[in-house]
Each structure stands twice: as C-alpha cells, then as structure tokens.
Design a protein around this nucleic acid. Structure first.
Lengths: 229, 229
DNA sequence: AAGTACTGTGTAATGATTTGA
DNA sequence: ATCAAATCATTACACAGTACT
C-alpha cells in the first residue's frame, strides 16, 4: 500500500491487445503485420498517459531498456525502492519493472548456462589434447624401456624383475586408455569443432546441416534423441 | 493458394483477452489474482465458440497437451497438415498450435542444453581422471628410466645419447602437464561434484549456498560475473 | 528472365500471466 | 508481497517459395 499508490499498478499494464486480437482487420494474411516504418527505434514513451488510442507498441524503448539493463547489471534482484524509482523514471508501471526483472533473471540463467557450457567445452578439449599427449608420451617411454630391456637382455644382464613390476603397474594404470574409448567424445556429435560463440550452441545441439537449406527443411529436428522429461 | 484454404489461420487467434486486459476490474490489488477454484484442471474446451463471456482460462487442457506433446515427440517441426489436424482435433486455433510448437522447441532447446552439459561434464570428469592416471604413469615410467640410467651409469656403460634424446622429447611433450594447471577445473567452481540431475545445473550456475536460506537472500545474485551480451 | 510484392514458416527475443512456494 | 518456473503470446526479423509485373 506504500508504493503503487495512484493507480492500481495493474490497471493499464496489459499490452495493447487490439492489434493482435483484431489482426485480421489488417490486410495481411497470417502473422505478417508490416510495422509502420520509423516506429521501431523511436523514442516514444509508452506510459499510461498515451496508450489509449492506437499505439500498437509494447516493446520497451531503448532508453527504458538501457536503464533497466544498467540496474540489472549491478543488482540482479530488485528491491522495492529501486522498483518505484525505475517506474517513475521510465514511465512504466511498477509491475512492469518487476516482470522485466523476473524475465531478465530467468533468461540470464540460460545465458549463463550457455557460457558455462562453452567454457567447459574448451576445458574439455584442452584436457583431451593433454591426455593425448600424455598417451603418446607413455608410448614413447614404453618404447624406450623396451629397447633398453632388449639391449640389456642381449647383454645377459638381469634386472628383469624390476622391469616387469614397472610394466605391470603401468598396464593397470592405462589399461583402459590405450585406445580412443570415449563414447561421447565424437559420438555426442557436433561439439568437437572450435567453439565459435554462444550461438554456435544451437548448431551443436541441433543436427544442423549448414549446406542444404533447400532440401529436407524438417530433417534437423528428426534426428536427436528425445531428452524430454 | 493451394494450402491454407478455408480460414485465414489468424482470424481468431488471440487468446481470450478479457481476463488480462481488464484484470483491473477485479478487486485484487497488484499481481495476485485469485483464480476461481475448480476451473483449473477441467476439461473445458476453449475454442472460438466459447471464449466470449468469462472463461478466464488460457492453459491448455491435459488432453490437448498430451496430443501436442505426442506429436512433438515424433516431429519437432510442425507441418501445415499436422497443424490443421491438431487444431481441428483439439478445438484450438491453428495459430495456437504453431505458437505452442515454437515455445515447445525453445523449451526443448534449453533442456537439451542442460543434458548436453551434464553429459559433457561427465565426459570431462572421466577424461580428467584418465589424464591423471596417465600423468602418474608417466612419472612412474620416468622414475624407472632414471633408476635404470643411474644403474647403468654406475656400471660405466654409455648409451647416454639415446637416453637424453628420449628425455628431451618426453619433457617437451609433457612440459605443461606436470602440475595441476587447469584454471577452470576447480575454479569454474561448483561443478566438480557428482552430477546429480538436470536441475542440479542451477546449483552450479548460481552461487548457491545450500545451507543458508535465511540470511542474505540477495547474495546469490551478486557474485557471478556478468556474461551479458 | 529479372525484379518486386506477398505469403507462410522459422527462430530469437521479449512481454506478460499463471501457479506454487 | 515476492520469487522462480513454466507457459502463452507477441514482436521482429530472416528466408524460401510463389506470383505478379
């Protein structure tokens, strides 16, 4: 009862419904309403005082977004005071501010996840390479040891026990590593390439064939296993 | 002009608007509209013939969801025929079907991402372990080699050139690997634990402290770096 | 035959609502 | 009242065919 004083804060929020509900009034067939050019980036405030007639706009202006974004950067959570201040400054309902922050948080989470994935992917690649090198190194060392043993055996020397013990522990340590036995390293598919950007995620998740945009437009959806709950 | 024959497919789309646009008519203050009990799970069809008065419902019925879900499982993409069929079968607008599928794909993508992450995480852990073992193995092998060389040197033998060359290549191969030099392996934080489930993702992304749910409710938002675009 | 307008579809981003805690 | 999660819908742009000039 402290804030949202004058109006009921929910009174006008609702998007200007007319445009979509009566979209059939427009000449355009399905969902291809042609936007009045020059209305996109404009700095037209859409507060409660001017959404009465036909402002078919809902998107926040760049100013509003900027302010919201800045605020979000420093505080993911929105305390009531900030909310009211933003609402007053930007000519929006407090409720809108709250909703914006909620959505922002939810979507920020997904972004985070993507970044996390990319990071992990890079780490993974690095570790794989290092493992590869270590594997080669082990082979090299083994070869050397073998050569040496052969040489010594030819000379009639016998520190053979020590050698075998070493070989044994070695075998047990890398028994499962001698071959490429990572079922997902390549089979998980698509994610062995260079990590381009966050949007490259989609290309890895979806069986996207970048070449054929003509044939089989539905193919990319048919392949993946269903991970649904 | 062949397809999209009878209806214009967008004519009636809009959701039953009354409920949201005129929400301020309800007595409820801000954003806490209390739903008329007993209307939630009911199987009331909401096609164009009965959304005129006061059906404050938007959620699809379980039947509708089931059908949509089933269809989605077999085809992530919605071809027009299927769309019309579903629309007729379920008493929904074709537009609604399309929208549902779009949203479903978006949600599915996030789920996929989570699964992908978990899978990759497990692979990562495995590879790390294997790398660890290989590292130990390399050390063991080196030790053996060293022992052997010392022994031979003590005996006055001199295959020293061969040894050094081997040692050199070895050093170069694992120069950067001898220590734990993975900046993110633990620093990325939070994701070295067992991979519990897909929802465990949030716990890894957000700096979530599972113990203190009372104090510092805002703390978990203040920590992470901003990965925003 | 090239250019242009129209239409349907897709994805991505975004605003808003519902539900339960 | 607030939040997170899920959901519905809309906005906006891109691309592909088709048709009309």
């Amino acid at each position: 009862m402290d804030w949202n004083d004058h109006v009921n804060s929910r009174s006008f929020i609702s998007r200007p419904v007319a445009q979509t509900s009566f979209a059939f009034l427009y000449n355009y067939k399905d969902d291809h309403y042609v936007y009045p050019t020059g209305l996109i980036g404009m700095d037209m405030k859409q507060n409660e005082y001017e959404n009465n007639n036909q402002d078919k706009k809902k998107r926040l202006t760049s100013e509003q977004l900027e302010a919201l974004e800045t605020t979000f950067q420093e505080e993911k959570k929105l305390d009531p005071d900030t909310k009211m201040k933003l609402a007053n400054d930007l000519g929006l309902q407090p409720r809108q501010i709250a909703v914006w922050f909620q959505n922002r948080r939810a979507r920020w989470k997904n972004k985070q996840l993507e970044c996390l994935y990319d990071t992990l992917k890079q780490e993974f690649d690095v570790v794989c390479m290092e493992k590869q090198k270590l594997q080669e190194e082990v082979l090299a060392l083994r070869t050397i040891l073998k050569q040496r043993v052969n040489k010594r055996q030819g000379a009639g020397s016998s520190t053979r026990y020590t050698y075998m013990s070493g070989e044994e522990t070695i075998e047990s340590a890398s028994a499962a590593n001698t071959t490429n036995n990572h079922p997902h390293q390549l089979t998980l598919g698509q994610h062995q390439g260079a990590v381009a950007s966050t949007t490259a995620m989609a290309d890895r998740m979806i069986n996207y064939d970048p070449g054929s945009s003509v044939s089989a437009p539905y193919s990319k959806w048919a392949v993946l296993p269903s991970y649904e709950p």
